[in-house]
Design a protein around this nucleic acid. Structure first.
Length: 293
DNA sequence: CCGCGGGCCTGAGAGC
DNA sequence: TGCTCTCAGGCCCGCG
């Protein structure tokens, strides 16, 4: 599932094909993804240059020469492929590697540097949206976004503050993009596991006393940073080795310590617990009741 | 205002 | 083998 490390890996894969190039032709094979595409989406993009390709949380943001921003979201199953000459590189083959090629290719960018970029998304939870750059702050999905978990501003005090007064579980709080931007179900489970904190713990219990050191929140922030950075390194390594071309996910999925390991022994040295699966807010949570408190 | 749960959407995999 | 059913989860929105 595309969470921050996957979206960032996709961004890095797209940069050489997009930055500094302009759209020579754009194909929209259907009028909508999750939502209707902007009116005259294809025609409007043609001729514009991608000045830079950034990311905020799970959103890709292409800064265009028209003073607009192309917002792209991968949803659950969105992937890009980049073709340059004969070689085609999948960038972020997350979920449906064996799906019939072509059937869910909804948007194709032809770039002035010769690259062809294809956006494929079987479940169409992803979307693309155009917005004026000076209106970016008004964009509801971006405006209220929490801090970047790998940014300098994100620390234990900030996380504890964001969780203070919340009535919900720590799992739900970390999944809330307003608390911290970019975590999804998998990395929330993994981070809580590494920090030895129970997903069922009340979010407000993260804080100890305001204005005092926050050991639990600090440990959680460190765990979040660690797991995201490891996943990012794995994504990069996989891309460099071109191991994605066999359609195998690679990335980080083989390094999960708790996600999707129901019934298997806890990997924490000396713990001896068994990984359990519970459902929170309609989503699977994997955790070790023994060492996560 | 906040938290929860339903809906969106398709493919994979289990079970009969 | 083929059908049906459940599950996967990011995000929005409606309800209480």
């Amino acid at each position: 599932m595309p969470e921050l490390p996957e979206v960032e890996t996709v961004r890095r894969g797209l940069v050489p094909a997009m930055e500094g190039a302009h759209f020579t032709k754009v194909e929209a094979h259907r009028p909508d993804l999750r939502w209707p595409l902007p009116k005259n989406f294809a025609g409007h993009l043609q001729g514009q240059e991608v000045v830079s390709l950034g990311r905020r949380g799970k959103y890709l943001l292409a800064d265009l020469s028209s003073q607009e921003v192309l917002i792209m979201h991968l949803g659950m199953s969105g992937t890009f492929r980049v073709r340059h000459g004969c070689a085609e590189t999948p960038i972020g083959e997350f979920h449906h590697p064996r799906a019939k090629p072509g059937t869910h290719d909804h948007v194709v960018f032809h770039m002035s540097n010769g690259a062809t970029i294809t956006f494929s998304d079987p479940r169409r939870f992803g979307f693309m949206k155009l917005i004026a750059r000076d209106k970016l702050e008004d964009e509801p999905s971006l405006r209220a976004l929490g801090p970047e978990p790998l940014g300098n501003a994100f620390d234990g005090a900030m996380l504890a503050q964001a969780c203070a007064g919340k009535k919900t579980s720590l799992k739900a709080a970390l999944s809330d993009q307003h608390v911290v931007a970019g975590l999804g179900n998998i990395y929330v489970c993994e981070a809580l596991y590494r920090a030895h904190l129970s997903p069922k713990r009340g979010a407000s219990t993260l804080a100890t006393r305001t204005g005092h050191p926050q050991p639990r929140a600090d440990a959680l922030v460190q765990a979040i940073r660690d797991v995201l950075e490891e996943a990012l390194r794995a994504g990069g390594t996989t891309l460099r080795n071109h191991r994605l071309t066999d359609g195998e996910l690679g990335y980080f999925q083989h390094a999960f310590r708790v996600y999707d390991r129901e019934g298997q022994p806890c990997m924490t040295p000396g713990c001896g617990g068994t990984v359990r699966r519970i459902v929170q807010s309609g989503r699977s949570t994997f955790y070790c009741p023994q060492c996560q408190r």
